[in-house]
Amino acid sequence: MSPETACLALDPAVLLRAGAEAFIVLHKDALRERIDVRQTRVLDWEGDVLFLAQTDPPVPREASGAQAEVVALAPACGEELRPMGYVARVLDVRPDYPSAGLAVEAIAVSAPTPCDLFETSLRMHYRVPVEEDMGVGILLEGFETPQLLDFSAGGARVLVDASEQAYADLAVGKSIPFRLLFVGSGYAAGDAVVRSLRREDDRATCGLFFTNMEIRDIRYLERMVARVVSACRQREGDAGYV
């Protein structure tokens, strides 16, 4: 979670305005390529405190005092988004924060200054190009025939056709329930957030970030990705001796 020292010309009050979609990264382990990132949204910004909606699974009150990375997707060029974040301190988890006339559970974190923001990443995984005989596919809610281009334990790239029912509703930031299928083994399920979107003629390439996954699905996906990567590297090694 080491931020760059350069101050980026981006207003955090705009990026993290009330209602904005965001992510809270509780843990990054570069050595094991693991990341604990949870989707949330901004409830409000009061003085030097930012209030975020409780996540699923929830951030426990015992996390108070810990460091976390708060991230939101900022416009870059075209329809691409870049994750911009800052290192925050978890101040408290409040069970009855007033929001829209209701008492909701909220995570209180330290708010950023403009110079706290830096470009970061919500992915720490090796991305695997999909081959026809790999036995891996994806189901996306609202799409009948999405084509999986590549995937990792943290996301995927998918090609969808304009004739699909949900094509017109595609937008950066949209969350789509997914299942990543491994033929003869099982699947991992969760929500896929559209990180990037490139439309070309009658189709679009979507960059997806996986979130809201059960622990068992995360562990299963990590195992399957490691197995596929190992097999790919073995084939590459064998090809060198042919």
Results as ranks from 00 to 15, higher is better:
1 M>P: 13
2 S>H: 15
6 A>C: 08
9 A>P: 12
10 L>I: 14
13 A>M: 12
14 V>N: 12
15 L>Y: 02
16 L>E: 00
17 R>V: 07
18 A>P: 04
19 G>L: 06
20 A>N: 10
26 L>N: 06
29 D>K: 03
34 R>C: 04
35 I>A: 04
37 V>L: 09
38 R>V: 02
44 D>N: 11
47 G>A: 11
50 L>V: 03
52 L>Y: 03
56 D>L: 11
56 D>P: 06
57 P>L: 06
59 V>D: 04
60 P>M: 09
61 R>G: 15
63 A>Q: 08
64 S>K: 10
71 V>K: 00
72 A>V: 04
73 L>P: 00
75 P>L: 04
80 E>H: 11
81 L>R: 07
81 L>E: 03
84 M>F: 04
86 Y>M: 00
91 L>F: 02
91 L>Q: 09
93 V>P: 00
95 P>C: 05
98 P>Y: 02
104 V>L: 11
107 I>P: 00
112 P>F: 02
117 L>E: 03
120 T>K: 01
123 R>S: 08
124 M>P: 00
124 M>N: 10
125 H>R: 13
128 V>D: 01
128 V>Y: 00
129 P>A: 05
130 V>C: 05
133 D>R: 07
133 D>S: 13
134 M>E: 05
135 G>I: 09
137 G>E: 08
140 L>N: 02
145 T>S: 12
148 L>F: 01
150 D>W: 01
169 D>P: 06
170 L>K: 05
171 A>R: 11
172 V>Y: 00
173 G>Q: 06
175 S>F: 09
178 F>Y: 10
180 L>M: 09
181 L>I: 13
185 S>D: 14
194 V>L: 08
194 V>T: 11
194 V>N: 03
195 R>L: 11
196 S>H: 13
197 L>F: 06
215 I>P: 07
216 R>F: 14
216 R>G: 05
219 R>A: 10
219 R>F: 10
225 V>M: 00
227 R>A: 12
227 R>W: 08
235 R>S: 04
237 G>I: 07
238 D>F: 12
238 D>P: 04
241 Y>K: 09
242 V>S: 13
